[in-house]
Design a protein around this nucleic acid. Structure first.
Lengths: 340, 340
DNA sequence: TTGTACGCGTTATCAA
DNA sequence: TTGATAACGCGTACAA
């Protein structure tokens, strides 16, 4: 229960003033070599730690940034966070992480809390859809910079870092076409988040541009989890003309579908091809390994952090903002490798 | 670039003093209903947000806790963090997450930083081994409570939450024996972390208590990743008498071994059984699914948070501490199910 | 080279 | 019921 040492304690110890101690500690040139050494010695001896709170209060900069994601234990998001941290840590920033569980009220509360905590910025992958974006508007009207990543909303002054979801959807579908698949179904997550719409759009365009129709029964809305994927697959396979491929907007949903297909003894990729989205870790370890669209989450995190830092550097005068779109990369594995 | 509203701004607006505003905002009874309502109205109108930094400076409590883990994008650790957050968030705490990458200097720096940031506590899974624990001692001699989870060090006054690694190692090995395996090898991570030693001990005791010898060539030290596991498996299979089972202290290492065995067309579990440790997500999705010792990470996180909260509640007088050991649970899957 | 005094935003104590 | 003031720990302009 030792009380924390302050510069006043050191000052008293050495019979000087706190100001002098502060100068010694901050390499201020206006101090004698002798006192500086005395202070430094006392500081280590008394186990002094600078109180960053006081500093933050004075300077108005907390050197903390908030990071808000739906779930922290999805590999995709934890990798993004890792990228953010890697970039921000060397600059002296700390990262405060919160998860919303896709709960919008909670997301709003979290943002409020972070703002109260005087974070210098908020990097967020929002659970709000474009339709509800006005609900988020009040908190964004702040001095604190916001950066959207992955799941963004369009606000005139707010930066974003996303991946090219349309291209990802297009490439995945085109790849299935190239493999000779004729009836390509699509799983799409129906929570109104824009990026899923973009993947769907890419899917549709790839079909249309290659002489296929979009068959409504083949486009299945579902929740982003394994159980939903199993049910969706069941529904598809009970159709009069079942599909021979699935491009899924979610790896977790696809996982369920694969389990279901394997139960029916349908062989992948010979009789059925699948491609997922997000390149979750398990896709490469499964048998067969699953093709998936990679969103380079670590890169995305780094980029979001860089955009934030840029914004901090130039914040005095102009309020810059920037929308970065990273390329998506289709990773082809066994599950869609019909041809050699 | 709107300046943030303070209680002074509200006070000026209403021609009262900041103290009165503070009282109104904090439901202090010593205020008239009328002024309170006036203040509250002005506060929302002016978009006032309490500056928690100032509060923290005054109260000495930042309502932040630091969480330090080796890697944030391991499912095991992100699940622990999720447990911690679930428990702490409702109590008004924020979680500051840092990862050490198993780098000890960085770990020390991170701890220093967190202390500087005036966190109310630090929950940590350390990368330091028992041999080096004195290096960590200076920072622990603080008013700030520390809680070790998963990877602990023995300090007289510091709480810890761990899983019963010895029991986990024992159960896994015993299970392999029960399956009829005769030559059980062991992968063990050689970074001097205590918990790996405990798993090794459990392995040895299970063997000895069941009439088996511990064969030194079968106990392979390795790094905690897939490549190391492949090499280790190769070494084992090139022995004059190769083993017929592996109990691995790391799922990632085991993953490499399984890949190697599959390349040799050795069928699991018929000809070779394996059991891992940590119950990483991919173990259940692989073919065959991998048996593994579950450490209930979410529970571990919750428990660590609870211990921290207890400590905070009783901190005025006695410094309590507490060592919790959670049970480990062997999850049996195909990879070790020789018998029906 | 060092000391004095102030302000960051808040709450608590004392006085009015 | 409200106001004035001090304090939390720090950095810094100004004065000495």
């Amino acid at each position: 229960m030792t009380k924390k040492t302050t510069i006043y304690d050191i000052a008293k110890e050495l019979n000087i003033t706190a100001a002098t101690v502060s100068r010694a500690l901050n390499n201020n040139p206006r101090i004698s070599k002798n006192t500086r050494e005395l202070v430094l010695a006392a500081a280590t001896r008394m186990n002094y730690k600078q109180n960053k709170l006081a500093l933050a209060l004075k300077s108005g900069k907390s050197k903390n940034v908030g990071v808000v994601v739906p779930y922290i234990n999805r590999n995709f998001f934890s990798s993004i966070i890792r990228g953010i941290e890697d970039e921000l840590y060397p600059k002296g920033y700390h990262v405060i992480i919160s998860q919303t569980h896709e709960n919008k009220e909670r997301e709003l509360k979290i943002i409020q809390n972070l703002l109260n905590a005087q974070v210098d910025g908020i990097l967020i992958s929002t659970s709000y859809s474009t339709e509800e974006k006005d609900k988020l508007e009040p908190v964004l009207k702040k001095a604190t910079p916001f950066i959207f990543f992955d799941r963004k909303l369009d606000f005139p002054d707010i930066s974003s870092v996303t991946v090219d979801d349309y291209q990802g959807g297009f490439d995945a579908t085109k790849h299935l076409i190239d493999q000779g698949c004729k009836r390509i179904a699509h799983f799409y997550v129906n929570n109104e988040i824009e990026l899923y719409k973009n993947r769907l759009l890419g899917y549709k365009d790839a079909l249309l541009q290659n002489g296929f129709e979009v068959i409504p029964e083949y486009v299945i809305p579902l929740k982003n989890d394994m159980e939903a994927g199993m049910e969706a697959a069941e529904r598809l396979m009970n159709l009069l003309v079942p599909p021979d491929a699935i491009f899924s907007s979610t790896d977790y949903g696809l996982l369920g579908a694969v389990k279901y297909l394997q139960r029916l003894s349908i062989s992948i990729p010979e009789d059925f091809c699948v491609v997922g989205f997000s390149n979750e870790l398990f896709t490469q370890f499964m048998e067969p390994s699953i093709s998936s669209v990679d969103q380079s989450p670590v890169e995305m995190g780094r980029m979001a952090a860089k955009v934030f830092l840029e914004q901090m550097d130039s914040e005095q005068s102009v309020k810059i903002h920037k929308n970065v779109m990273l390329p998506s990369k289709l990773v082809i594995r066994k599950s869609s490798s019909k041809m050699k």
